[in-house]
Simulated scan of single mutants.
Amino acid sequence: MKIPANVLKWAMAASVPVAVAIVAPWEGKSNDPYRDIVGVRTVCYGETRVEMRRYTDAECLAMLNKAVAEFANQVLQCTPRLQYHPYQLAAAVSLAYNIGVGAYCRSTVDRLFDAGDLKGACDQFARWRMAGGMVVQGLVNRRKAETELCLTGL
């Protein structure tokens, strides 16, 4: 389903700032590359798709804004129903930013959103709480925050 350009522009304007606001504190920021909890080289706000070098604060923030917008576009391709649901879209973008778009698009979260069960989809966020085969308290906490955002306005 192709989303009309004016609707896409509105959806992005309504959801990307909210998604950035939730992604940034949960990802944390490191201007220098580091290995995340499962050993993946990461920099800035959890970015793995860039050159691993030191970045300035401004570069990290610009990178985050660009990445979140890209993830929002990709989430909308999987879940076009979210074009009119900015809080649910922002929560889905945060989830996809953390687990990857492919995993998001194959998830029960996506399937329930597609079926119109917004609350049911939001309730599924909590299932994504593991890294490296272990439950991670930080992910439990993040999913709780994403779920609360997702339930906003429902």
Rank of each mutant, 00 (worst) to 15 (best):
Y34Q: 08
D57W: 05
Y87D: 15
V109C: 02
D117N: 15
Y55K: 06
F71L: 09
K2V: 12
R142M: 02
M63G: 12
D110E: 13
S30Q: 10
S15A: 14
Y87N: 15
L139P: 03
T147Y: 04
R129T: 03
A67D: 15
R41E: 15
A19L: 02
M130W: 03
V20H: 00
L64A: 13
Q137W: 06
K144E: 13
N98W: 00
S107D: 01
G133S: 10
G116P: 04
R81H: 09
N141C: 01
V18C: 00
D123H: 07
R111M: 04
N6Q: 08
A24H: 03
V140P: 07
D57S: 11
P80Y: 09
L151E: 10
L154E: 04
A72L: 09
S107L: 01
A103H: 07
E27Q: 04
P25F: 02
I22D: 00
N141K: 10
A19V: 00
I3T: 04
Q83L: 10
G138T: 05
P86W: 01
N31K: 07
K66H: 14
Y45D: 05
M12V: 09
E51M: 13
L154K: 03
V109R: 01
G138P: 05
D32V: 12
G28S: 04
A90P: 03
S94T: 09
M130D: 05
C78F: 10
T56Y: 11
K119P: 00
M130T: 14
G120K: 06
V75Y: 10
E70V: 14
G102N: 13
C44N: 03
L151Q: 11
L112C: 06
L112P: 00
G39N: 09
M63Y: 02
T108H: 03
R127A: 09
C78L: 07
Y97G: 01
F71H: 13
I22W: 08
